[in-house]
Design a protein around this nucleic acid. Structure first.
Lengths: 196, 196
DNA sequence: TCTTATTTTAACAATTTTGTCTAACAAAAA
DNA sequence: TTTTTGTTAGACAAAATTGTTAAAATAAGA
């Protein structure tokens, strides 16, 4: 329990998240993080004991945040289509700022194995899947395993932002053009999912 | 120019690619790579001089390979829909084996800045985009900036495989179930793109 | 076989990155 | 003010990672 609470602990975590999730510097060292935060590297050990524990803390928070965002969106009291549109809005807004959060989570899961198992509520997702199935019955969306619908949704949302640097090269798109495209994504995704 | 050519140089590159692209161990050290290849770490320096140059070599090859795969698919002499289906087949097959190749490319671009600029032919992509535009005119696919069509295609293709470990957690899907879903992807993606 | 160029290995050195220890500093409580 | 607790900073140590050197092993050609 910090008594003074100078905000340094939070600053370190926020800075690390900025480097890792926003700038995609997945190899950031403790020195990199300390420098970016404008604190002595020792502070990092004071608060988190080791680099691994800092990473673990960030991993946990990111996982919780993602799961919570997911659950809040999916249990919102709205009809299915509006709810889905809301998911797109919320997740796109987040992806624009932190495009590499999911990449970080996956690569850490790969290197650290299955150690960091934060328990996640899966009920909200399940109920959203049920709603999707119901919509399929009604003929509002194409019939498929609802999990495909969910994967489609998140693919269309996330992938372009994650791969932005690569797309710009491969497809010869400028930063300006790309941003304009992202602006249009919400509409495009809705059309894809609901074949309006 | 190697005279004896014992295949070690290739073995090192292939092993590194396996660790990086297949297993997603993006923090692999030279020792990790040497061990996995069953060679002395010195060999790695003998052939590539430094870790950075090994990474650069792999980056280059991966970029070339991706660009070439892209171009071959896009200049195939086929009608648009069949061509697109072929793209899905080819890229899915590759993603199943090397899900993290694109992630590697992006994170390296982020850390190394814009140093590694391998020149890429963009004409094949451009002509594919033109074909897509023509299909939209014909009403075969929904009207949008053709680049969106391309982003949709690759999003639906790649993202589920990249994020597999995360999906399995968030959506409570077993490995077996997940593989079954991936089997179905090609059909799903075709339906999404061509709203058949 | 002897020579030569290439490849592999072992020992060592340098660098980078992480972790520790101690003391100084700051602020609230006694 | 003194004490106590929590925070920051500097110097140092340890570990991990990368890089170098020189010598041994290997295979091909003269």
């Amino acid at each position: 329990m910090p008594l003074k609470n100078t905000g340094t602990e939070q600053l370190i975590k926020d800075t690390a998240k900025r480097l890792l999730f926003a700038e995609g510097k997945l190899h950031a060292t403790t020195q990199d993080i300390a420098d970016a935060a404008g604190v002595n590297r020792t502070g990092l050990h004071y608060y988190f004991r080791s680099r691994d524990q800092l990473i673990a803390a960030i991993f946990d928070e990111a996982m919780q945040e993602l799961s919570q965002r997911l659950n809040e969106c999916m249990t919102a009291d709205q009809p299915f289509k509006a709810k889905t549109k809301h998911i797109i809005t919320v997740f796109l807004r987040h992806m624009v700022v932190f495009p590499y959060q999911e990449t970080f989570l996956v690569t850490e899961m790969n290197t650290l194995g299955k150690k960091l198992i934060t328990n996640i509520k899966s009920d909200p997702v399940k109920s959203y899947l049920k709603e999707a199935a119901a919509e399929m019955e009604k003929g509002n969306i194409g019939k498929m395993d609802p999990v495909h619908f969910l994967m489609n949704l998140f693919s269309l949302l996330s992938y372009p932002l994650i791969m932005a640097p690569l797309y710009k090269k491969l497809f010869q798109v400028s930063g300006k053009e790309f941003n304009a495209l992202i602006e249009e994504r919400e509409g495009i995704i809705m059309k894809m999912l609901f074949r309006k």
